[in-house]
Design a protein around this nucleic acid. Structure first.
Lengths: 261, 261
DNA sequence: CAGTGGTCTAGACCACTGG
DNA sequence: CAGTGGTCTAGACCACTGC
């Protein structure tokens, strides 16, 4: 049974000698962490409902209000989705709504869906030894096994995105070009469904570059066409890096859309 | 005196005949809107504290919990900043913390502040008539007065950003190149302090482009150097567009950093 | 020490969903 | 209609800040 404090019982976590920070952690944060553990452990699968607030509150011996704050915290992190009258569900990439959370390239005119989903072409999927920079980005040792995937996305038949991505070998054991081609939905939905890897957060570094001849050929442009270089590191629960993705975006008919809050 | 519902009293706002949406608005949202009005009216200036939760709760005849939710909503929108033990303060751009919320270009190596603040060079600040596209972006009629400002930002003496920006004439009456040059801090802090215009939110469209000869000269690069084109529309309270800014960023030593949540 | 925001609880009631 | 999340309240206590 997990921490059942009837009296506060916080102010605990690992306060080593000489530590500068008192590191007070409120109860709802502790509960949030416990639920996160269970999410990561796969106790509730993506798309499924988690138990109701009342049931969870009883299970963890806290008030419904505290449980609410814990779940709220997970909801703002997009790990969980609340639906009034229905319940709270584990977030999944297999949903219309979530599709465009990680793909920010949109057509210059009109709405997001005006051109429908992209046509995907898997170019390659092969096993490699991680080079130093890739190993570092993925938190691996150099020479550890990684998978490299290359693909092109086209809109209305026009190749628009070229992606070169690396995945740690162990969690993605068994991934092949065939399976990628056979999968009908977003790649992150496949990762989630087939390998239990749910991407929750990513950082991107964006630059303007000129393509090398091979890249130019894949996108059907000249080597003098400026392209957007988007280097992404995507993370799963607990900020574990699980993917390095280098994208080249054509921006003559599309643009990268960003919102500054 | 503003809405003092002892019994709920919500479920009100403008439910015209045949309206599809019931448009229920919880009390804390209504309170939030009332506080927003006062912020916009300048009752409390940027950097100043707003009254305490308890005082505001009494003033609006709601419980402290409800006032808390209202203020929380404003805090997540970055309109207000909470500081435990001190109070709640109107957000301001004249703060270290907030500086980099709208400028996402960072050096490839090291931390954000490794190179210190940019050297700013105001090239121009003149009155214009709005062209069709600029008028539309700013919500003006064509031919209305706008101010055009051009400047270059340099890091370690290297010109890195060229910006071309348009402001509606009326709210910024009196802005000159001299005042821009004399101002020591971020431009948005000047807007806020001198013109009462507080930018809250912005949308950016990012592309890879080649500069024209004039732009290339200002940045000290050739016309074959790919640059990041960043077109921003910045908004004040209530989503009023107040600035159109077209930036050209060098990305040979810097990159545009983005976080996908 | 007083005053602020932050946490936690307990309970009532409301809005939404589905059977 | 029962069950879910969402709102609102009232009160106690805690953590942080500054005088």
């Amino acid at each position: 049974m997990p921490a059942a404090p009837t009296t506060p019982a916080h102010t605990a976590p690992a306060d080593s000698v000489g530590s500068a920070a008192p590191a007070f952690s409120p109860l709802y944060q502790q509960i949030r962490a416990l639920i996160l553990e269970r999410l990561q452990a796969g106790e509730w699968k993506p798309g499924e409902p988690i138990p109701s607030e009342i049931e969870l509150a009883a299970r963890f011996h806290v008030s419904q209000g505290t449980m609410r704050k814990a779940i709220d915290a997970l909801a703002v992190e997009n790990l969980v989705v609340r639906r009034q009258g229905k319940g709270t569900f584990v977030a999944t990439h297999a949903e219309q709504q979530v599709q465009y959370r990680f793909l920010r390239l949109v057509p210059d005119d009109g709405a997001l869906n005006s051109e429908g989903p992209a046509q995907r072409t898997i170019i390659d999927c092969r096993s490699q030894r991680a080079s130093a920079d890739i190993a570092q980005a993925l938190g691996l040792r150099a020479d550890e096994a990684v998978l490299q995937v290359q693909r092109v996305l086209a809109y209305r038949g026009v190749p628009t995105i070229f992606e070169d991505l690396w995945l740690p070998g162990a969690p993605f054991k068994g991934l092949t070009a065939e399976r990628l081609r056979a999968w009908p939905g977003p790649m992150y939905a496949l990762f989630e469904h087939e390998f239990g890897v749910h991407m929750v957060r990513a950082e991107e570094k964006i630059r303007a570059v000129l393509p090398n001849p091979a890249q130019a050929a894949l996108l059907g442009v000249t080597s003098a066409t400026p392209l957007l270089s988007v280097e992404r590191v995507a993370h799963t629960y607990h900020n574990t890096p699980m993917e390095l993705r280098r994208g080249l975006y054509r921006t003559d008919t599309h643009h990268y859309r960003n919102e500054l809050g």
